[in-house]
Amino acid sequence: MNVAANTIQVWSDLLCPFAHVAIYRLRAARTKLGLDDVVRLDHHTFALELFNGPHSRPGTDSEAVGLGQLAPEIGFRLWTQPDWTYPSTVLLAAEAVHAAKARGLRASEDLDSALRRAFWFESRTIGHRQVILEVAAEVDSVDAAALATALDDGRARSAVMADHAVAITDAVQGSPHLFLPDGSSVHNPGIEVHWEGPWASGYPIAEATDPGWPERFLNLAAS
């Protein structure tokens, strides 16, 4: 991984609860440390649906319930809209996050964060073009009109698939996996869990947590 100075490269899936926890805590710690204008997040796609098929709501729900107890400050909410509106794919949303990089990493990470909030807090169908653009219009750093053009001509699709070509190798272990400029990395930082029962019908139980990892990572990236 070639990670630029003052940057943390984040590989994740938009519907991954573990990624939502990591990114939320990373951004909160960055603000606390006064590093919002120093360290940027460079988002890359670890598309779970390209490994497992359409996103499974039972699997996502069970993980969110377990992690909601571990990280209540994040405010996980279960899906509240009709089942048929649940996003079985978020590849177009991943394209949008890549396309937003045309305005810089800030726009890309702000859109990524807004899409996660829209899904986890508001039960919005972030796989749909209209919803993606509605969310984009709510983000000051994103040019929603330019993003619409980028989605319609598919210019960021190759970036998503190029990420997948890396994701299927041993370079990336899963969602989330974070990489630093010094070459170090960590998969699913700060949380160790085991499953009680089978995936999607059981739930994750935390075995260990490390709330201090975001500050360590940010200070390393800033140095």
Rank of each mutant, 00 (worst) to 15 (best):
T85C: 12
G183D: 07
E73F: 13
G68P: 15
F51D: 10
R106D: 01
H164G: 06
S123K: 03
R40G: 07
D140I: 12
V39D: 01
R106Y: 07
I132H: 05
F46I: 08
W120H: 06
A146R: 03
R116H: 01
L111K: 14
Q69C: 15
A150F: 00
F179Y: 13
T169P: 05
D36C: 13
G53L: 15
V135R: 04
V139M: 11
W120L: 01
L14Q: 07
A171W: 13
L180F: 08
A93W: 03
T31G: 15
G212I: 05
G104T: 02
R25E: 03
Q81G: 14
S201F: 08
D83T: 04
A28P: 11
W79R: 13
D13W: 10
S123H: 10
G154E: 11
E95N: 00
D210A: 11
G53E: 04
S108W: 01
W195A: 01
T169M: 04
L48V: 11
A165N: 06
I8R: 02
Q173I: 08
Q81R: 11
D143R: 03
T85W: 06
R117F: 07
D13I: 02
E207K: 15
A208H: 13
H164L: 06
A200P: 01
F179R: 15
G34C: 14
L35F: 15
R129T: 03
R30A: 08
A64G: 09
L35E: 06
A22L: 03
A145I: 10
P17A: 11
P189G: 10
T31E: 12
A99S: 14
L33H: 05
R106Q: 14
V139I: 01
D83K: 08
N2V: 06
D42A: 12
A150G: 05
A118I: 02
L67N: 09
D152N: 08
I191M: 14
I74K: 08
I132T: 00
S184Q: 12
V3E: 08
S158I: 09
L26D: 00
L14V: 03
A200C: 07
L35P: 06
E196R: 15
R129C: 04
V166G: 00
V193S: 06
D37G: 12
P189A: 00
T149N: 10
Y203M: 09
L111I: 09
V160S: 05
A47W: 04
R25V: 14
P189W: 02
L26Q: 03
L33T: 12
L178V: 09
T7N: 05
A222W: 04
L147C: 05
A4Y: 13
G190I: 02
L70E: 15
R129A: 08
A136I: 01
Q173V: 07
I126Y: 03
E138D: 12
V172H: 11
V90K: 06
H55R: 07
W79K: 05
R157N: 01
Y24Q: 15
C16R: 06
A71L: 03
A137D: 09
A5F: 12
H20R: 13
T89L: 10
F46P: 07
L41W: 00
Q173D: 13
V193K: 05
A19Y: 00
N188E: 15
A208I: 02
